[in-house]
């Protein structure tokens, strides 16, 4: 119910009760996402990793809606959870038998990867805390789909067309690479 309360109050970002509800919703989603992401990169079962990825992606959609980007949140659910995760599950099924588990990772490799990840996080945290110490979000209300459409088909029309061509090229490329000849 807390999440719903936060979503309904989205148009009044500065209200006291709404702000508390938003922060509680953020905390719940953030903890769930970080825990799921950690499980995703450490679990030995490949299918479980895909399901943990679903939780993280749904959490990202929730964060988008919390930030007032409703269209993006729905797009995230449709494209990622609806399409990309299904692609991953197909990839897992079609390569099954070669790699049921991913338990052959040596300790040294994990240690070095953890060290690199921790260093990346440390550097980014130091930079962010120093740059945006107490910066508040200033959005007055949720962004509408009409705003995004106006923006895409006026200011960002060239990148939009480039993305269209990229998707076509990727589609044809995937078919050419994966077909049996």
């Amino acid at each position: 119910m807390t999440v719903l309360a936060a979503l309904e109050g989205m148009d009044r970002l500065s209200g006291g009760d709404v702000l508390v509800a938003q922060n509680v919703a953020f905390a719940i989603m953030a903890i769930t996402m970080v825990a799921s992401a950690l499980r995703m990169v450490t679990t030995r079962n490949v299918v479980h990793a895909a399901l943990y990825l679903v939780i993280v992606l749904a959490g990202v959609a929730g964060i988008f809606i919390l930030l007032g980007a409703e269209f993006l949140g729905v797009t995230q659910i449709m494209v990622y959870i609806g399409a990309i995760v299904v692609l991953f599950l197909f990839g897992i099924m079609l390569t099954k038998g070669s790699f049921g588990d991913d338990d052959g990772v040596t300790g040294e490799r994990r240690l070095m990867a953890g060290l690199v990840g921790f260093l990346v996080f440390g550097v980014m945290t130091a930079a962010l805390v120093e740059s945006f110490a107490d910066a508040e979000l200033s959005r007055s209300g949720p962004s509408t789909t009409a705003d995004i459409a106006d923006s895409i088909f006026s200011a960002y029309i060239v990148p939009f067309e480039a993305v269209s061509v990229l998707l076509l090229a990727a589609l044809i490329g995937a078919i050419v690479v994966a077909r049996k000849d």
Partner: peptide, 25 residues
């Protein structure tokens, strides 16, 4: 809401992703 709470969450997820790219076979 603070800007930094979102940026720090993003940083955590990014670092976990970097770990996954480096550690997974």
């Amino acid at each position: 809401m603070l800007l930094n709470q979102f940026l720090l969450l993003s940083a955590v997820l990014f670092s976990i992703g970097v770990y996954g790219v480096l550690a997974r076979r």
